[in-house]
Design a binder for these strands. Sequence first.
DNA 1: CTCAATACTTACCATAAGGTAACTACTTGC
DNA 2: GCAAGTAGTTACCTTATGGTAAGTATTGAG
Lengths: 120, 120
Amino acid sequence: MSPKHNPNQCPMESILGQIMGPWTPYILWLLSNEESLRFGQIAALIPDISAKVLTDRLRKLEGSGLVHRDYHPTVPPTVYYSLTARGAEIHCVLQGLNKVALRWDEEDKSDKGNAEIAAE
Amino acid sequence: MSPKHNPNQCPMESILGQIMGPWTPYILWLLSNEESLRFGQIAALIPDISAKVLTDRLRKLEGSGLVHRDYHPTVPPTVYYSLTARGAEIHCVLQGLNKVALRWDEEDKSDKGNAEIAAE
DNA sequence: CTCAATACTTACCATAAGGTAACTACTTGC
DNA sequence: GCAAGTAGTTACCTTATGGTAAGTATTGAG
């Protein structure tokens, strides 16, 4: 996004700025399928994300009120992340997206299969 | 996304890679509300996007089969962009997202209004 | 002869974003 | 007194991204 651009002028852009971008929807998707997840669990479910970026995304999601951070000062510390009520509202959107994703994946697979058969 | 990361391994990541990122969902949203739009029209509807980035996004969307490019070799040339059948499938997803966006926007406005009243 | 119009493309530059690796805190266990 | 374990933070560096400005093609109008 351009620095001059104010996302607040449009609700659609505002929400896109909050939930989109690398890894963010994926984190929300994981959290929307579990009660809560610890930092290390999320990191394990997304192998290619670095701790720095994961922290950054979780902080931003917490800042926009989509994710709740539950810190337990045990030793070593345990931190549970879960969706807030607002965060849970996008579950149906992600579910819709996932449906489309699975459908396209099937189509692409069968297209690829047909192409291979045709090539023989 | 990390360069090592292969989005094809997961349908969800694949679709996110195709439709998310700066401006892309916005372009799809505009196209899903019109029959077709010319390059200049899209540029006018998104004032802060540069021609370079708009071209890039449209090429990528065309490449993943979500957008159809209709080039008329008139002078000066006219190019119409429209959603393909596959591109149209994400309209309902964007519509769901827009609904949530509008609801949050209303909530935030009234919260802000209450805060201002409380501050008086 | 030059401009205007559309839809780009190209070159160059500045900023932002992400990766890696090392470091922090604190207590239990060895 | 040193390592382990969790959830980070920090510094440093590289890459990617986007902006700006200029150039391209073609032809009718002035």
